[in-house]
């Protein structure tokens, strides 16, 4: 049944569509501007001719980035941190959540309080830094992995999900003589596949995007992850990096064009997996909000 719309409603609906379309344009334009700048010639950039479409289209900025060894070293450090870090995150999350999901486990409430306490009262930056320093993690890749090995928030999401699995399944497996470790990997995890994907992606995107941990714990250039490399390039306009890239190139390159090409290459992994992660992330965000 279609109820006829009043004039006021028609105006509102039209305005609503326009407002939301404008919001989308606001999101897209900066991204297009950066893509266009990275693909334009130095001359067009200097004369501020580039808006959202490349002028004198060419790949020279990208060629320079591709040849840049510092960039690729940072890129591979980031890949390492994402892969190993996410793996450790998931193992920690799964194996901490699984026992706590068992209603018959004695003392589980005390352990839950122990966990939730750290979410309400979290330590300041400096004492954490001192602990990381005392353990000897400063200036190692592990400084970007071990101090953030577990997110209590994601742990609670995982716990909620494990609790909803029917205990009879585990009982049956126990009768068949299956050990607890195998039950986790062969029953609990496969049955929670959607939430595992979501949490894995939460962790992976965190590792890929974060620069604060590296800023705190990494001072050696050869250990800097991609985001910290980008930080120096963008915020500090690191002239050494810029000269290093430009020196390897034959044509005259504009620093801003180079910066933007580097940024685009660093964004590509996110954009490639975005359609895939969007679905899972929304699910995770909802479970997370219910939990809060």
């Amino acid at each position: 049944m279609q109820i006829r719309r009043s004039l006021g409603e028609k105006i509102f609906d039209a305005a609503n569509v326009i407002i939301l379309a404008l919001a989308c344009v606001t999101v897209i334009i900066p991204i297009l501007h950066v893509i266009a700048s990275s693909l334009s010639s130095t001359n067009a950039l200097i004369h501020a001719k580039v808006s959202i479409w490349p002028v004198d289209f060419n790949w020279s900025n990208y060629e320079a980035v591709m040849k840049n060894k510092t960039f690729w070293r940072s890129f591979s450090i980031s890949i390492f941190v994402v892969v190993v870090g996410t793996l450790i995150n998931m193992l920690m999350t799964i194996f901490t959540a699984y026992p706590l999901s068992k209603s018959y486990l004695r003392g589980k409430n005390a352990i839950l309080i122990y966990i939730v306490f750290t979410m309400i009262f979290y330590p300041p930056m400096i004492p954490v830094y001192l602990v990381v320093k005392d353990i000897g993690l400063i200036n190692t890749v592990w400084a970007m992995i071990i101090p953030v090995a577990l997110s209590q928030f994601n742990l609670l999401i995982c716990l909620t999900f494990f609790r909803s699995l029917p205990e009879e399944l585990f009982e049956a497996a126990r009768v068949d003589g299956m050990g607890e470790m195998r039950m986790v990997m062969q029953i609990a995890v496969p049955l929670s596949k959607p939430i595992m994907m979501t949490l894995g992606l939460f962790y992976a995107v965190f590792h890929w995007n974060s620069y604060a941990t590296a800023l705190l714990y990494i001072t050696k250039t050869h250990l800097k992850p991609l985001q910290l490399y980008l930080y120096n390039l963008v915020a500090k306009s690191d002239m050494n990096d810029m000269l290093a890239i430009a020196a390897e190139s034959t044509t005259q390159l504009n620093p801003q064009g180079l910066q933007m090409a580097t940024i685009m290459v660093a964004t590509v992994p996110i954009v490639i997996i975005y359609p895939f992660i969007q679905k899972h992330f929304i699910k995770g965000a909802l479970i997370g909000s219910v939990k809060e």
Binding site: N209, S210, Q227, L230, Q259, M260, I263, A266, T267, Q278
Partner: peptide, 20 residues
């Protein structure tokens, strides 16, 4: 789909967009 995308970009990248 469009409005969720920026959430997945890091602050460094958004900083870069802003500087540009």
């Amino acid at each position: 789909t469009i409005l969720y995308l920026p959430h997945f970009l890091s602050w460094v990248i958004i900083g870069g967009l802003g500087y540009m």
